[in-house]
Amino acid sequence: MNQKKKNYIKHSYIFKALAVLAIITLISHLFREHLDIINIGLIHIIPVVIVAIHGNMKATIFITALSVIFFNFLYIPPLYSFSVHNELYLWSFIIFAVVGWIITVQAKNLHTQTKQNELRESLLHIISHDLRTPLSTIHGTINLILANDNMDKKDRKNLLEDINYASLRMKRLITNLLDSARLHSDDIDLEYEWCDFEDILGVVLKDFSQKQNDELLAIEIDDLSLFWGDNILLTQLITNLLDNAFKYSKSDTKIELKIVHFTSLVKIEIFNQSEHIDKDKLKNIFDKFYRLEDTNDISGSGIGLAICKSIVKLHGGEIKAVARDNGISIEVELPITKKATLL
């Protein structure tokens, strides 16, 4: 219902143009003696212009055709017929179409520019917020340590762990931003090589805190099979998936990571417990800057999962989020395109 209404508002300019066309027809008809055919032709361009500035090519074609038909049927001799005696008028019709086309293309460019600007602004906003959150942790904690000379060792260590974790978070965000720029330029070439997911995990886990590593993560990975893919991007994929799971899991619950090789695909599954989640919203969680509502207190730009999706797509795979009874499971399937020949 809502959606329909929105669609109606979005396309209301077409109805405006139709109304204008009707008025023009009326005026032209009443004053046909005083207005020359040239002027009548020119005012028939007005509806075309009205629609074209909205940048919708289909709508432009529709209104241009309609204008031409009205103009032809009512004013071009022979009157009240679609046939055209003087072929010069065919040129008029072509000019209608050209005008419509030029304006539509220009309008389209303008629209994308505005959209990009909006995106850029929200990006800046998110980055500054997301960088500032860990930075304030670092800053505050360091000041606390500096001010307390007699702090006991254990407290100090805990605080240092916090600093370490915050700095790792900043590092990940920066990596993600750089990668996101790279992944969204169209001509990216994957650097294919033989990848071992166990090896990749080893690299990924170095970037998480000791506690996350030892207490909160359960890993299940089957025996060695090599996968033909981009090692750096797959590392980034696993990092983001884990980061996301840690961020949104209920505190002190286990994260389960499973990597299983089948004959034609590799399946990566990562599960974290969380509060109840609206299933409809799960579809959007791979969109850039999308975050589930009521997660505002958690630092994150929503950029991580969008990058996961790009990486999976680049490898020809699928990624989806599934709601389980007590949490979310993100499931990735990567097709196996090449099998390793071993000694």
Binding site: C195, D196, E198, D199, G202, L205, L224, L226, L342
Partner: peptide
């Protein structure tokens, strides 16, 4: 990749945290 993986199984306590 293959031999690093099998070697890790023989000398590492946890091959995902070498």
């Amino acid at each position: 990749r293959t031999y690093v993986n099998t070697l890790r199984k023989k000398i590492e306590e946890d091959s995902t945290r070498p």
